[in-house]
Structure formats: structure tokens, C-alpha cells
């Protein structure tokens, strides 16, 4: 474990917590893409499938973190699609999730480290996570704005994988550890946030709201 990975995981936890708090406190999921949250839930379940296969006692933080990610993301989907369904902005959350899931699944079968069920599920979850934020970014571009709290969520969510890139550089240098698939997907994922990062740093940090030219 290194400082980049630690802060990356903390940033990821913060993102999940910020979104849950936003929905719970405002009792509304306006401006939140339910599809992105569904895709994240699928990512966690397919990536941490080992938790269900051979349940080992919760002796280490990694198992606890995996369970937190899975339960928090499923609970977030429950809030969006059931509890606060009336506030879900389905009209603007219109990016076809199939256009992300099918290519990720196909690519996972073609490009993977080992043609093994668990490994392909892991690879699928890595590819899917790289593009899972697209419906959320698409929704913001459609509505032309993002609530400040949603911007903080996106900043934390984007920073998590950006910090993981620093973690991979660190591990390559000191542990000569390389996980090419995760690195390439992680770089693509972070690049997708670039224009949001620009808007966040130039606007939200100065207390302005993100309003896109509609």
C-alpha cells in the first residue's frame, strides 16, 4: 500500500459518501445519472465476485472495503430507482448503457490476461468502470448544469482513478508491478474527466456553479 493508493481509495469512498449524503439529505436524485450508478454497482459485483464464491472471514480491511463498495452502490441505486424515483431525471439520463456494457464485455473476452471466468469478469469490470461515468457526464451536458455537491462527487470520483495512476507509477518504479489492462483503462477513465476537471477548478473552486453552454 502506498500513499497514492490510500488517498485514491479514500477519494473513492468520499465520492460514494458525498453522493449518498446528497440524495439522502435533499431527498432527491435530480442531476444524478441512475445508469452510471447501476454501471458502478455492476463493476463492483463483477470485480469482487470472489466475496460471494469463497466467503473468507472479514479479517482484513480489503474485504470490508469491498463489501462497503458493493452495499453502498446497491443502496444508491435503490434510492435512485425506488425510494426517490419521483425525482429521477429519466428524460435526461438517456445515454444507452448497452452501448457501454456490450463493447466492454466483448473487449474483455478478446483482450484479457487469462481466458478464465473470474479473470474475464474482472477485466469486464475494469473496462466498464472506465466508461461508466459517461451517462453522468452526458446528463450534465443535456441539463447544461451540475449542482455544486454533484460537482464535488464527480471531482472525488475522477480523482480516485487519477491517484491510482500515480500509484501504478509508484509500483512500477519500486515494485516493478505492472497491470497493463488496469493502467490503460485507468488512463482512459481519467482522460474522460479532463474537461470536467477544468470546469471544476476554474469555476466550482471559486464558488461558481458549473453551467455548460446548453
Amino acid at each position: 500500500m502506498n500513499i497514492f493508493r490510500l488517498f485514491g481509495d479514500l477519494s473513492h469512498l468520499a465520492a460514494i459518501a458525498i453522493l449518498l449524503l446528497k440524495i439522502w439529505k435533499t431527498r432527491s436524485c435530480a442531476g444524478v445519472s441512475g445508469k452510471t450508478q447501476l454501471l458502478f454497482a455492476v463493476c463492483f459485483i463483477t470485480r469482487y465476485i470472489d466475496l460471494f464464491l469463497h466467503f473468507v472471514s472479514l479479517y482484513n480491511t480489503e474485504k470490508v472495503m469491498k463489501l462497503i463498495y458493493i452495499s453502498a452502490s446497491v443502496f444508491t441505486c435503490y434510492l435512485i430507482f425506488f425510494k426517490f424515483k419521483a425525482t429521477y431525471d429519466g428524460n435526461h439520463d438517456s445515454m444507452r448503457a448497452e452501448f457501454l456494457i456490450v463493447p466492454a464485455a466483448g473487449l474483455a473476452c478478446l483482450i484479457n490476461t487469462k481466458f478464465d471466468a473470474i479473470e474475464i469478469l474482472w477485466t469486464f469490470s475494469i473496462y466498464l468502470e472506465a466508461v461508466a461515468i459517461l451517462p453522468q457526464l452526458f446528463l450534465i451536458s443535456k441539463t447544461g448544469e451540475a449542482e455544486t455537491i454533484t460537482s464535488h462527487y464527480l471531482f472525488a470520483q475522477g480523482s480516485y482513478r487519477a491517484l491510482y495512476i500515480l500509484n501504478w507509477i509508484y509500483r512500477y518504479h519500486y515494485e516493478s508491478h505492472v497491470d497493463t489492462i488496469a493502467i490503460v483503462a485507468g488512463v482512459v477513465q481519467t482522460i474522460l474527466y479532463c474537461d470536467f476537471f477544468y470546469l471544476y477548478i476554474t469555476k466550482v473552486v471559486k464558488g461558481q456553479k458549473i453551467v455548460l453552454p446548453a
Binding site: D116, I118, Y164
Partner: peptide, 10 residues
């Protein structure tokens, strides 16, 4: 058989 990579990250 070659070892399946241990993806030790979350």
C-alpha cells in the same frame, strides 16, 4: 499453468 494475476487492488 501460468499463474492467474493477483489483482491485489480494489
Amino acid at each position: 499453468p501460468e499463474p492467474v494475476p493477483d489483482h491485489d487492488e480494489l
